[in-house]
Design a protein around this nucleic acid. Structure first.
Lengths: 224, 224, 224, 224
DNA sequence: GATGAATGAGCGTTCATTCAT
DNA sequence: TATGAATGAACGCTCATTCAT
């Protein structure tokens, strides 16, 4: 294949520019994330972000359409990140249940502990901002929910089809659980030291919940 | 001498005024709740509330310190309401588990279906507004969590004492589930028609989770 | 002479009412004066005055036309009071100069030390409020100035007529001096303990100033 | 290699911007001063200032923190201006008394006649606005007073040390005179045409006052 | 006479966004 | 690309005044 010479002066400059632009974008995004978490989205002024990032306000607007866009891109990054972490964790494990629990453990230990700011953006700062932000937030949770749904479908095997709502509700319940446990112990309190116990208990709870649902499905099948 | 109670007229007038004042307060609160839910807290202007309540802006400020105060009082009312509903539901039932499930069912069927606006205020409109609002929101969830904690303590009997964090995490997990299931099926989607099934599945999941946690506690006890 | 019986029940009641009304008026006025001095006229709300006077806002408006009226009546009281004090002091003394100095001394020792609030109202709180208030303030100073003028006219005897502006300017200068010395040592600083020395020095200064002006007038007369 | 100073263009632009910014600031300040004098500080809206300066409200807030800041900066300018005028006038003259009178004459003829708006701001519009404004006003008068104090110290020579309060009170008295004479004949009345006579008489009065105080100090010294 | 809830025009301030340089 | 001064619609809140009871 014949790729255009990547080292022509023009291209080199272009590449460097590209790289610099991305750097700047990342810097702005990181600054915005920090300020949104520290002072809240509505209390963070574009001016503040520019100042902290050591650039002019106009420059922020060169890289992002507007303030909402900043938040939306942040949310996209977060969504990408969380799927990466959970997806990777889900690869390892022999049984479906094991894979599921690996993912659950990764949620707490890699995502929540590794990126607490992401948690804050997703669970606090992006709530009730705009119809579009709310839609994006919902999309992220829907995807999260569907990932969980896919994972527990393996566990529940054939039973899920009889009534799709059952597995759905279960997924939503699990997501809600993960969410608030994280919010409670990382945002409201800081019990990051006890995260191991907390994770274990939460997963134990989920395991039992899943078994219970499964048992019910089997019972209904036998009846029907 | 037979003097008619000299302050009766005054008191009667004062009482009527008192009553009328409370009515006004309630009207304003109801209007605010509706508008906060419809357009969001930040998008609702004090002017709008006044207009919808058919009074002057100043009147709103006569009854409430400021916009935040309006939200805080709304939250207090909601907290009172939810505790009433759950507390009453918890009275009925023979076994601890039955009482617990009655309360869970009441959460969905009485609180969520009966006062969807309360749900929206608590889970969406009061998020990330102010430090004080956030504190109030946390207090409400803490009390909710503690009620759940008290309820499952009956179920778990003596086991809870060995490691208090276990029951705590379990309570938080249960609250999180209830929350997001409600948010998902009443705010994001409107599946109020399927609420019966949803409730049943959610409670089934929780029941199983509780059993699982309980089983673990027993196992540890036997080991220790 | 045949005055209507002053002790008829109706009249007695009317008198008592009259007395009570005046009492209330005085109470309100005193409260207003205190609050104006403590927090400034613009920062004092009618509500505050009512509250401190332990009556309803409406009652304040029954006794006074509006907030400005409150200030105006206060200023009238002050004007009356100051003229009383100075007029009385001016009675005593053999020579015109002695009488003049008695009045000057009374200004500091009776008016300023006895009614510091009056000083504050007149020199700080009534400045730059309204055209009408400013006019009243000016009227008070004009009268004060004219009193001084009359007093020094006795001292200057026949010389004042040749150029009326001379005695005028002198009066204004004296008034300005008294004013700021009082403001400096009673409002900005509290040197009420040193008031005796301050008074003595100020009067000595005035005496010298007057002599100087007088000497000039005589000189001009001899030239002319 | 011969690189053109790379930050020269940037600096030039920056300098121009700086200059333009200062121009804007001065324009706003001048407009504010005019409006404050014409309609009074409290009656002047930020909107008015913006409109008269032909800019947007936001622009005023870009250059000044708030309305109070506008007044404070105006006061600083005035303080600078008055010290300049008096300081310069004080340079000329052979005897201390001559220098002192030159400064006094400059106060009336250069400061008051040349900048009547400054007088109004200082003596009327900045009174009773805020604690901070009052403090600034006091600071200006204190410095004025101290300048006068320094000037008369030369005249009084060694006598002032015996009792510092004497010279202090004298300074305050002189400042008060200058003030009210200016206020009376330039703000309340417009006798700017007679300013020459007024100045002469006022200074004559002060001269006499100073001599009198001096004579007293000598008398006490001889006694002691 | 007294009450106090109601009024609503008015004002200071904010801040996301733009655009000439 | 970057800058930062300029914009102006928008909003929360105040408070002197009124008036039905």
């Amino acid at each position: 294949m014949n790729r255009a010479a990547p080292d022509r002066p023009h291209t080199i400059t272009a590449l460097r520019r590209q790289r610099e632009k991305e750097n700047r974008t990342r810097t702005i995004l990181a600054t915005a994330e920090r300020l949104f978490c520290e002072h809240g989205y509505p209390n963070t002024k574009m001016q503040d972000i520019a100042q902290e990032a050591e650039i002019a306000v106009g420059t922020v607007y060169f890289h992002f359409r507007n303030k909402e866009d900043l938040l939306l891109q942040l949310m996209d990054d977060i969504a990408f990140n969380i799927r990466n972490i959970l997806g990777e964790a889900f690869q390892n494990g022999k049984t479906p249940m094991e894979r599921f629990e690996n993912a659950g453990r990764a949620f707490f230990e890699k995502f929540c502990l590794g990126h607490p700011a992401h948690l804050i953006i997703l669970l606090r700062e992006s709530v009730g901002i705009t119809a579009e932000v709310e839609a994006r937030r919902r999309a992220i949770f829907d995807r999260f929910k569907e990932d969980v749904h896919a994972a527990i479908s393996e566990v529940m095997a054939e039973y899920v089809l009889s009534n799709p709502l059952v597995a759905e509700v279960t997924s939503v319940a699990i997501v809600g659980m993960l969410e608030r446990v994280a919010y409670q112990y990382l945002i409201w309190q800081d019990r990051s030291g006890d995260m191991d116990t907390i994770t274990t208990e939460a997963l134990s709870f989920i395991r039992g919940g899943l078994r219970s649902v499964l048992r019910n499905l089997r019972a209904r099948e036998n009846e029907g």
